[in-house]
Design a protein around this nucleic acid. Structure first.
Lengths: 160, 160
DNA sequence: ATGAAACCTTTTAAGGTCAAACTATTTTAT
DNA sequence: ATAAAATAGTTTGACCTTAAAAGGTTTCAT
């Protein structure tokens, strides 16, 4: 997709990098979650189960913080996981504001099947890049991501 | 976010690359569209206006193809743009199945203000990477994206 | 101890997203 | 010419997503 935009070199470069980054990431995720689903799980449901699978029971806010999602969103995603008996909510008695979310035996069993498949899919999909290229990509994205998370770098308050 | 997963080097690398790629992209887009909005436009609305701004009037299917979105989705996004008088639908008389979407004068004027700001935001946000790094990132993502779009590379049919 | 502030989750309203089923139109094959 | 197939857009149902307001619960100052 050529840019159809005339600007300075820096502008054209930034625009092209942006387009390639966002389109490729979207294609990647569409390929990984065809029809938005992965073994019957949405990306958010899978992410939630994965966090619990590797870190153990957490309260909703903690899960949301890991996944960069809003509290209201977590309520819905966990509702849907609970309907399918993959997780269980348990009000925390030490702090009754919190709700600890546990993987059920069913959820645990599902992840034991699905997670290794997920890893295999990622290895296959990244195999078009050499290990060195994957490392470079990871480093660049880490740098970009950290800059975006730091409160200083908002696009509106461009440096004077 | 360390991986909490023990696997082969390839597996750990793929998983880490995946996490960095998706999280950083998400942070980037959240930063670019705070609260999911950009000058009052959602990302999809902005994308639609941008395509029309640079390519001229197109039918809905063509816009959807450019943005990798489903037909039903385009119906809704264009509905919302039409409500705000940024866009106008016109049934094509040569082929009455098609609906050509035009930018209104209002939409044109909005893009004339917003698009240059968009480019400036991108330049600012990518400024943590050198031009060379941006070029490398673009190349890697292009390679990754092309592999994901080719029908052969579905994650399910992993190479034997 | 009591009121205010902070915190966690839920609810709501607005919008996005897909697949699948449906309508209308055009093309193609007979 | 007409039936069948392909195409363009819409509708529907299920889910995701956010911000903002509202409900309990806890903590902190007084």
């Amino acid at each position: 997709m050529p840019t159809h935009f005339s600007g300075s070199d820096r502008e054209v470069l930034a625009l092209n990098t942006y387009i390639k980054l966002t389109r490729a990431t979207e294609s990647f995720l569409t390929r990984l979650y065809p029809g938005g689903r992965y073994h019957g799980l949405t990306a958010s449901q899978f992410g939630t189960l994965e966090v619990l699978y590797h870190l153990g029971p957490l309260c909703q806010g903690e899960i949301g913080a890991k996944l960069l999602k809003s509290p209201g969103n977590m309520t819905l995603v966990i509702d849907n996981l609970e309907k399918r008996s993959l997780v269980r909510r348990q009000r925390d008695n030490d702090d009754r504001r919190q709700i600890t979310v546990h993987l059920t035996a069913e959820g645990q069993a599902l992840m034991a099947v699905v997670f290794p498949q997920h890893v295999a899919d990622l290895v296959a999909m990244f195999s078009v890049l050499t290990p060195e290229e994957q490392a470079v990509l990871g480093d660049l994205m880490k740098k970009l991501g950290q800059a975006c998370e730091s409160p200083a770098a908002a696009p509106q308050d461009a440096p004077g």
